[in-house]
Nucleic acid binder design. Structure first.
Length: 195
DNA sequence: GGCCAGGTGTAAA
DNA sequence: TTTACACATGGC
């Protein structure tokens, strides 16, 4: 399996080229996107982020200070806007707290801290760890599960998230740039292919 | 017009 | 432990 995981990466890279993903101007913007994109098309997330930017609210301080109803209005296009407004504030507080000491924390501890926040599940936690904290953990999303089925004929239950994660992490060196690129390529494959 | 998107939390069996 | 359901908008 290890060789197949590596071979698949090379194939995607040859087909699509480097992706330079996640699309965000700052690490904190990754956190915002990670919350807003939950079960939501990225197109809609872009509208919400665009609204936040135009209102000069795309930073930690502004998000914590803004009123709930105003925040809900700004992120409305991303759906589940009431939930997401409340959870975005919770995630922001944890993000600020962890930012001070993340470099000295084991990844497992960082992950546990993120998972303790209501609204941050495994995929969201791992997206933040990889794309905002820049630490090597492999992100599993809907595209990745489809990709495993198609390329490796492997299919776990959705709740067995960590089985998918191990599949990739046991086959690859724990390299941040590699993990970012591989996941980005899988998403690109998914968007072009759909199956 | 219906289906579904880069999930998560909660309640009930 | 597993399953079912709520949460909501906008593009195709």
């Amino acid at each position: 399996m290890d060789k197949r995981v590596i071979a698949a990466y090379k194939k995607l890279l040859a087909q699509f080229g480097s992706q330079f993903w996640w699309p965000a101007d700052s690490d904190y913007e990754v956190v915002v996107g990670a919350i807003l994109t939950q079960n939501t098309n990225w197109r809609n997330v872009e509208k919400a982020i665009s609204n936040l930017r135009a209102a000069h609210k795309l930073n930690e301080k502004a998000i914590l200070e803004i009123g709930n109803s105003e925040l809900e209005t700004l992120i409305r296009p991303s759906g589940f806007y009431k939930q997401k407004a409340a959870r975005l504030k919770l995630a922001t507080r944890k993000w600020m707290e962890l930012s001070r000491r993340a470099d000295r924390m084991p990844i497992a501890d960082l992950r546990a801290e993120l998972l303790s926040v209501k609204g941050i599940g495994k995929e969201t936690a791992d997206s933040i760890i990889l794309y905002a904290f820049h630490k090597p953990i492999f992100v599993i999303d809907a595209y990745t599960r489809r990709f495993c089925k198609k390329f490796f004929d492997v299919e776990f239950r959705k709740q067995d998230y960590d089985e998918y994660r191990k599949l990739f992490e046991s086959a690859l060196p724990p390299d941040v740039a590699l993990f970012k690129e591989y996941h980005a390529l899988i998403v690109e494959w998914g968007k072009n292919n759909g199956n």
